[in-house]
């Protein structure tokens, strides 16, 4: 991710009112994660497993924070269980930002085709609404809109960052 694109993600999160971020470091979105960690305006938790990140975000929301989970497709698969049993069951609004690889045209190797088959279908199966942002100019609106919907619906909402926005 280019530095200026990382800034777009970072600025959009701030504008959306996000002030708590759980993350597991991922090379696709590392620069944005770094900006967030260095900003004292965010409470951040680096987790060992994305599942505990979901739970940390849920606890933060119960305590009055506006949480976001920033992860990769692989982490989304790890987080399936808490997303379903905690955030969807109870109706806990968390913003899930997924650095999404494996799109057609993506310069990604054979492993990444797995995410083409899993990420969006599983979001559907878990009944987690999502919006996609591939271009820098649509990213801010995707993130602020997703947070707005999460708050209004009392439900987790995801943003898939893919394509140009992830490119180096």
């Amino acid at each position: 991710m280019k530095t200026e694109y990382a800034s777009i993600v970072y600025d959009a999160l701030k504008e959306a009112g996000i002030n708590f971020v759980a993350y597991l470091p991922d090379d696709q979105i590392h620069d944005a994660q770094k900006m967030i960690v260095e900003d004292a305006g965010f409470v951040t938790v680096a987790v060992a497993n994305e599942g505990e990140g979901v739970a940390a975000c849920a606890g933060a929301w119960l305590g009055g924070k506006k949480p976001a989970l920033i992860i990769a497709d692989s982490g989304f698969l790890v987080a399936t269980w808490p997303l379903a049993s905690l955030t969807v069951s109870y109706g806990i609004p968390i913003l899930v930002i997924i650095a999404h690889r494996g799109e057609v045209g993506d310069r990604a190797n054979w492993r990444f085709i797995t995410y083409k088959f899993t990420t969006e279908p599983i979001l559907h199966a878990l009944q987690i609404p999502y919006v996609r942002a591939s271009k820098p100019e649509e990213t801010k609106e995707a993130i602020t809109g997703a947070q707005l919907s999460a708050s209004l619906w009392q439900h987790p909402v995801a943003v898939l960052l893919s394509g140009e926005i992830l490119r180096d």
């Binding site: 599942g51 399936t80 899993t118 599983i122």
Partner: peptide, 17 residues
């Protein structure tokens, strides 16, 4: 059924892939 959700990641990355 609960554990099936916990197992989604290895079912994908090992069994499916």
């Amino acid at each position: 059924t609960s554990g099936f959700l916990v197992a989604v990641w290895p079912l994908t990355s090992l069994c499916m892939a």
